[in-house]
Write a protein that binds this DNA or RNA. Sequence first.
DNA 1: AACCTGGTGCCTATTACATCA
DNA 2: TTTGATGTAATAGGCACCAGG
Length: 288
Amino acid sequence: MGIDGDASNTALLLRLGLSSTVDSPSKPHNYHIPNKNPSFLKLEATSFDDEPSLTLGLSGGALATATQKTDVKPASAASAGDLHPQPQASSVTVSAVSSFSSGKAKRERELSSEELMEVEKKNNSSRLSDEDEEGVNGRKKLRLSKQQSALLEESFKQHSTLNPKQKQALARQLNLKPRQVEVWFQNRRARTKLKQTEVDCELLKKCCETLTDENRRLQKEIQELKALKLAQPFYMHMQAATLTMCPSCEITSGVADGKRSSNNPFSMASKTHHFYNNNPLSNPSAAC
DNA sequence: AACCTGGTGCCTATTACATCA
DNA sequence: TTTGATGTAATAGGCACCAGG
């Protein structure tokens, strides 16, 4: 039957499962993704001839919107060197850092004694001059020079994470603190991830549109086939005992004789359902 | 062996500064 | 000159993993 080819589509189930997880802004929680596999978004889009399946897992996904708030933070001062800008945020406060909170303790430990000495040495002179009356409580921000950015980018291309030795070496090379290198890499990874998320979202939107169109088309086709079926009285003569009806799509098929031939008018439906039975996820009806 | 604790690295979310249109 | 948008360095807090006790 010429309808056979199309018939396989009549029972095509288009499932678009979009499961996204959005962090609550009030209480962020973390999904720890193993460092070895930083990809967090999985996209599966099989061919439309096959069983389409889209799985989207979004971690966080919140595009940070910055709200300006005054925040009393440890003092920082920066010496804006052109080639090697070197903010003094940590160096200024390091000696005053206490271990009352785990966060502070954490930050404290992140500045190894080596770093401290290095930073202390580098910034001793500029510290006092920068620490003027209004700069004491402000958080100055480092702007990396082009050379620094380029080198960091280059390094990031080679490996998106750094081991301590690489970090130290890079920091020395860039005349930055290891912590700054580390932060740069963290932010860089985050940016990469965000970009990828945006790309994937766009892709999913397109997939969604395509699937919606396809679904609409198939629904229409089903309606047409149903109308066709009603118009053919031949079907009415089939033995009731040899017919089974799919409860979900109401397509009747003869299955009792086990001799389903291609010229059996119902073979279309049963064949189609059989095909999709290969994937239980695609078929909501257990009877199919 | 199971548990606890401290250290470490990475992540996400957010803040805040610098720059630009 | 001001201002809102944007980019990004820096911070905070949490989780997983590991080593040592």
